Computed example of a mutant assay.
Amino acid sequence: MTNFNGFQKLIAIANEYGIICYATPEECLVASLPGYDDFLLAFSWSGAFEGEPPEHELIAISIQDITKEVTVAAWQIPTYLFGNVLRQAQMLVTAHQDFVLRTNNP
């Protein structure tokens, strides 16, 4: 995301949904995942299809497990679905934790 206005728009969208985020030098936003202190939520603009309305611009999202140093999930969504990000991220982290627990305790 090289467009400063686009970056500000992404910050505004995150703030609108209560995600307190921080900008990184890589031009993405990072936030702690509410309820999961060991997980980071990162997102940035992924792109847009030419001729599509602005609400169809895509946001790339990933969840990082800080303690295990792995990416739990990564996906893309159009901006109009951003309100579901926290719920989706929390469900994916819960599934990841269940998987790790079952793998370590067969």
Rank of each mutant, 00 (worst) to 15 (best):
L92R: 15
E52V: 07
W75S: 06
I66S: 03
G18F: 00
G6L: 11
I66L: 10
T79L: 02
E69T: 13
A23L: 05
R102G: 06
W75Y: 10
G6P: 02
L29Q: 08
Q90A: 09
P54M: 00
N5P: 00
L86I: 10
H96R: 15
S46H: 15
D98W: 02
N5G: 05
P106M: 08
V93I: 02
N3R: 14
G35C: 08
A60L: 11
G83A: 06
E26Q: 14
A23W: 03
L40C: 05
N104G: 01
A48Q: 08
I13T: 09
S32C: 00
W75P: 13
F7H: 07
C21T: 12
N15M: 03
A60W: 00
L10P: 03
V30G: 10
L41Q: 05
D65I: 04
H56M: 13
T79F: 00
I63K: 06
M1A: 11
T79E: 11
L101I: 09
Y36P: 06
A12W: 02
I20N: 15
I61R: 08
E50C: 02
A12S: 08
L10N: 01
T103N: 07
A14Y: 05
A14S: 12
F49R: 13
E26C: 01
S62N: 08
Y36S: 10
Q90H: 12
E26K: 15
R102D: 09
I61S: 09
G51E: 01
Q76Y: 00
T103M: 11
D38L: 03
A60K: 09
V72N: 12
G35S: 02
V30H: 03
E50G: 12
F7G: 03
A60M: 04
F39C: 11
V85L: 08
F99N: 12
I13V: 13
L81C: 09
A31K: 09
L41E: 04
L40T: 10
Q64H: 13
D37S: 11
I61L: 07
N104S: 15
P54W: 00
V85I: 12
T71Y: 05
Y22E: 13
L40P: 05
I63L: 14
F82Q: 15
H56I: 04
E26F: 05
I11G: 02
W75K: 07
E69D: 10
P78A: 03
P25D: 15
I59P: 03
C28E: 11
N105E: 08
E55K: 06
I63W: 06
G6T: 04
I59Y: 03
F39Y: 14
F82L: 11
W75A: 05
N5D: 10
Q90W: 04
A23I: 06
T103K: 08
G35W: 00
P34W: 02
T71S: 08
Q64N: 06
A60N: 13
V85Y: 09
L33S: 08
E26N: 15
E16H: 14
L86E: 08
T79D: 01
A95N: 13
V93C: 12
T103R: 13
P106V: 12
Q64G: 00
V93M: 06
F82T: 06
C28L: 11
Q76H: 06
Q97S: 05
L101Y: 12
E69Q: 15
E16W: 01
Q97G: 06
H96W: 15
I66C: 15
Q97K: 13
